[in-house]
């Protein structure tokens, strides 16, 4: 599973705002220049990003195989023609370039995921969206990261329990209903407990998030991002 892993790579040391800005700039430039030349440059930038995050592209591609299957469906569907000659390979060129663009953007985003802890992402959200809205979103995102394993375990246990009681022989709608009802009951039980726990710990609008600051190492990345944005509007 692709998730944050501690490390000392260049990408680990970058400010989260820089990494988000670079990702967005790469995406904008990629959409503005989905041409063979543009994709060649995008490939080089993706390679630099992966190297800076100490990531092996083969391992990342293995993890993303399901998305890759979906991504290749564009060219496959495009070559089919309803009528003679039935298959027209020329029609696959533009979808193939669009699919390759998505592949590069997926790889770039994995580098962010792998090198950025949630507390840094939360601080970046609160910087990008000032005020209580940003704080609320930061708080909510932090909670989602913490609660996801709990909810995954709840749903997994429920599904095993349903299957163990001849669940696989029940009609599908009944299995879905049982699983969803069980999950919702546990969720609403947790609402009470967690709300009380957060209030007991004096949940406030002014929490202590990690201080953010651009370092010397951020400047080349920011120059790259501004360069890509400039290239996108040319």
């Amino acid at each position: 599973m692709l998730s944050y892993a501690p490390g000392s790579s260049v990408a680990h040391r970058l400010d989260p705002r820089t990494k988000l800005f670079v990702q967005i700039a790469i995406a904008i430039a990629a959409f503005a220049h989905t041409t063979p030349r543009g994709l060649l440059i995008l490939t080089a930038i993706t390679g630099i990003v992966l190297v800076s995050a100490d990531l092996d592209p083969r391992g990342v591609l293995r993890e993303l195989r399901w998305l890759l299957v979906l991504t290749t469906m564009g060219p496959v569907f495009s070559v089919l023609v309803f009528g003679p000659p039935w298959i027209d390979l020329y029609r696959a060129i533009d979808p193939a370039m669009a699919s390759y663009r998505v592949l590069c953007l997926l790889l770039v985003s994995v580098a962010y995921v792998r090198t950025t802890p949630v507390r840094d992402s939360r601080a970046a959200i609160e910087w990008f969206i000032p005020g209580r809205l940003g704080r609320g979103l930061g708080l909510g995102v932090g909670l989602v990261f913490r609660l996801l394993p709990v909810l995954l375990a709840d749903v997994s246990r429920l599904r095993m329990a349903i299957d163990a009681r001849a669940g696989t022989q029940r009609p599908l709608h009944d299995r879905i209903r049982r699983l969803t009802l069980g999950s919702l009951r546990r969720l609403f039980d947790r609402v009470e407990t967690l709300t009380m726990a957060l209030q007991a710990r004096c949940l406030s609008w002014n929490p202590t998030t990690p201080p953010l600051g651009f370092e010397v190492i951020d400047w080349p990345a920011l120059v790259l991002a501004f360069g890509l944005l400039g290239w996108a509007v040319v």
């Binding site: 990702q23 985003s109 994995v110 995921v113 950025t116």
Partner: peptide, 20 residues
């Protein structure tokens, strides 16, 4: 921002500009 919440435990901004 990296929580593996999308289908097949995918995450990242790239998924938002991908097939789904």
């Amino acid at each position: 921002l990296g929580a593996p919440v999308f289908a097949e435990r995918a995450s990242g901004l790239g998924v938002m500009v991908g097939p789904t």
